[in-house]
Amino acid sequence: MTHRGRLPVIQDSPAVEGGLSRRRFLQAAAGSAALLGLSACKSSDVLEELRRRNLKELSKEQLQEMLARLEKRWTDEYGKKVTVTAKPPIPGVDFGYGLDLSRCIGCRRCVYACVKENNQSRKNPQIQWIRVLQMEKDHGVDLAHATPYYDPEKVPEAGHFYMPVQCQQCRHPPCTKVCPVKATWKEPDGIVVIDYDWCIGCRCCTAACPYGARKFNWAEPKLPKEEMNPVTDYLGNRPRPKGVVEKCTFCLQRSRAGRYPACVEICPVGARKFGNLLDPKSEIREVMDRKRVFVFKEDLATEPQFYYFYAT
């Protein structure tokens, strides 16, 4: 980060003194669009969103205003009372996730619980934040001998083990470094978040992520009204537009309210552990202190906050 000053391309602040900032450009563009009568549909909302500042620059009032606007829009769109919060990280909490590879049977219950909780596009495009890899016991954790497309009558299959992969919430996330507009960043509680309204869809982060955790909405997400989860958070599971990147957020709409993520609750074998790494009594700390733990692709020095372990 120290060399940032020598790179004139990427500025720390989205507003560039004297230059044509994104905001100024959009303000001008929106102004002319309004003049031309191009934005007749919900014009005020659209303009408001185009003129928006970066999330971190919003005052409390502006944030509340924006959330209220989104709530109203989606309440109308999905025909049910939708709430949109912007829960801040809990002070003194650093989330850690444990996944017991000696328990996981590859049933994919977590994948679909996640889709349901987090309002992913169901198909065309199909977006799933968790990918369960079937691997061969002969080869150990080896991506050259792994497939996500296994489909037998019953799991687990003999000679195989299963390794679910989702966002590893790295301590040194390569994805946030490459974002040209700072639409994604790491929060103090360890969760790497995306402002879907700030994302320009360049997919640099998707390419930078060594875990394939980031998914892109290649088309308008298809989220059936009756399946939409109306309890949403701005940086979490709220509906996404076309052309933005999304990924696992440890269900921050749940975890920042003290609850387990949806994948933890659904797991039929109890392979998924979640808690505060700073709390020595937490389940995740018990795992860290007493079990054999490893992180995926350790050699890349991404330092995930997602730990795989063997309980036996």
Binding site: K123, P125, Q126, P148, Y150, D151, P156, A219
Partner: peptide, 25 residues
């Protein structure tokens, strides 16, 4: 012993996500 389960359906590979661009968009 924990009994084997029927897995949920596998993900759709990118090549099979939509038959046509009309279907996707």
């Amino acid at each position: 012993r924990f009994k084997a389960l029927k897995p949920e359906p596998p993900p759709v590979p990118p090549s099979k996500q939509a038959a046509s661009s009309q279907e996707m968009h």
